[in-house]
Design a binder for these strands. Structure first.
Lengths: 136, 136
DNA sequence: TTATACTGTAATAATAAATGTTACAGTTAG
DNA sequence: CTAACTGTAACATTTATTATTACAGTATAA
């Protein structure tokens, strides 16, 4: 799971707990990264309809939806991040060996199934659940 | 999920489908990587009791357990790989802000829960299930 | 109408993680 | 005692992720 997911969740919690318009610079300071990265993530959240933004002076980001309704599975989808990835594959499709030629696809399929399990689990966790966990 | 998991599964399937002693060089050729990496992974599988090895001439690796009994959750544990990882953290523990100081731990906790979901799922998949998938 | 403080995004640099290579000590069979 | 292995450490290379720089576009207010 890439850092963009963590940034998205962090930013959504921050926006909910502050209510006014928040700039990428303020978010970057709290998240501990640079404003450009924040803007890239927020841009995806905006495209997914979870937040809105205003350009220009006193601009920034603000929540669109009630945070209780935002599920982490939606956030994952918005930032286009997969929980389980396989960036390296074994074997070789061209080889005349059932194992070597087929293993990559089988492992990719398995990762897909794991991702679906994660998606299901994350659909049961909302941003306000995360806020609750922060308070404990 | 790192490539070591894929190598481990690939090698276990290969060993099961060949029955005799297999060298790291032969495995590396089929997996498409180098023998040293294979040996590192096999060494972990050996420590976990899933395979055994013989050094010296005509040495190599062979299965210890019936492949039908080997569950992918065991393989994961043997190679010490987690399905879901978070290598980058948002916020800063030292900050005087509940969100910034607590988010890293909350996200780590969430990853732990996702890993547990994956572990449960993988405990329902054996090496011989993977062989079955290869045949289709 | 112009200066200022933002977002949006592309291009590039730096860093971190994963994979590959080289080297060599230890083991076993013949 | 030689050949063909495993086991492991040290180091090099590659790839993925994160950070920086730069600048066009936009809203606000003086």
């Amino acid at each position: 799971m890439t850092g963009e997911m963590a940034i998205a969740v962090h930013a959504l919690v921050y926006l909910d707990m502050h209510a006014d318009m928040i700039s990428s610079e303020v978010l970057a300071e709290n998240v501990c990264t640079n404003p450009v990265r924040i803007r890239k993530v927020m841009s995806k959240l905006k495209k997914a309809g979870l937040v809105d933004s205003r350009e220009g002076i006193d601009g920034g980001y603000y929540l669109r939806d009630d945070v209780k309704k935002i599920r982490l599975s939606q956030v994952m989808e918005a930032v286009q991040v997969e929980a389980v990835t396989m960036r390296w594959h074994t074997g070789n499709k061209e080889k005349d060996c059932m194992i070597s030629s087929g293993m990559a696809e089988v492992m990719d399929g398995l990762c897909g199934e794991l991702n679906e399990e994660c998606r299901k689990y994350l659909s049961g966790v909302t941003i306000s659940d995360i806020e609750q966990r922060l308070r404990l």
